[in-house]
């Protein structure tokens, strides 16, 4: 009986064996299909919910500039809560080197360069860590293709990623990529002890410029605390002719 089981496992194993080459191929295609949008701006609402159902809302505006052969540049301006209104966050992301980040404090008119080592900490008290919101760069992870799975009626590639950058709060994530559109449908985040920590789902994608898929809503659920954060994206705009000048410290000081 034991023998049969083992031989059965051997038969099955090619199906679930990690395929690094295919994993990288799929994610290269994900990146490739999302090249060339140049610049993007959008409004973002975060709805924070705790176990008791108490809700808090944050709203911000985000601008992003696509960079050739480097991570994106982004500028986020907070609109609410009212006491942090006008606070702005400028970030130059890089694949493996440390990101460059500045924070603008409107009450003091002060621009502070801050450490970007804080990858795993919460963004604005939400269930999203800084690393969950930073731009996707192929070199940030090691990939393994684990097989196909249907999620919410969508046939997906199942990919395991392992962060290659420092200070990540995760040992790995499981990402389900839509086989048709090459966009994420669901992500499971595993903490440093390799226990399932959070699940992120993506609902209601819309296509822009006939090519680029952007999500309207994304939900992050923390399995340990029972807290969740919903991200609601509105008013996506592309190719507005933004340049690096719109992502410098002078613009940061002018933001509001």
């Amino acid at each position: 009986m034991k023998k049969i089981l083992i031989s059965l496992l051997f038969c099955l194993s090619p199906l679930v064996q990690a395929d690094t080459v295919k994993g990288l191929e799929i994610m290269t295609e994900v990146e490739h299909r999302d090249l060339g949008w140049a610049d993007m701006s959008a409004n973002l609402k975060m709805r924070l919910k705790n176990k008791n159902g108490d809700e808090h809302e944050r709203s911000l505006r985000m601008k992003t500039l696509e960079m050739q052969n480097d991570g994106d540049k982004s500028l986020s301006i907070f609109d609410s809560p009212r006491d942090v209104k006008g606070t702005a966050f400028l970030s130059f992301t890089h694949a493996l080197e440390a990101d460059e980040q500045w924070l603008y404090l409107p009450a003091l008119k002060r621009v502070k360069r801050i450490s970007s080592s804080n990858k795993s900490g919460p963004f604005l008290g939400s269930e999203f860590a800084f690393e969950d919101l930073s731009s996707f760069e192929l070199k940030k992870y090691h990939y393994d293709y684990l097989g196909d799975e249907v999620i919410n009626g969508i046939l997906c590639f199942m990919i395991e990623t392992q962060p290659q950058y420092e200070h990540s709060g995760y040992t790995r994530t499981l990402v389900w990529i839509d086989k048709q559109r090459y966009i994420p449908i669901k992500i499971d985040y595993y903490d440093r002890k390799n226990a399932l920590l959070k699940t992120q789902t993506f609902d209601n994608y819309q296509q822009y410029l006939g090519q680029y898929w952007r999500v309207n809503q994304s939900l992050m659920t923390n399995h340990l605390t029972g807290k969740s954060t919903a991200l609601i994206w509105e008013n996506y705009q592309f190719r507005q002719g933004l340049t690096e000048r719109q992502f410098d410290k002078n613009t940061l000081k002018r933001s509001r």
Partner: peptide, 12 residues
């Protein structure tokens, strides 16, 4: 010098 996200509590 900052210790970030101590014991995954979010505390810096």
């Amino acid at each position: 010098y900052t210790f970030f996200n101590i014991a995954n509590s979010g505390l810096d």
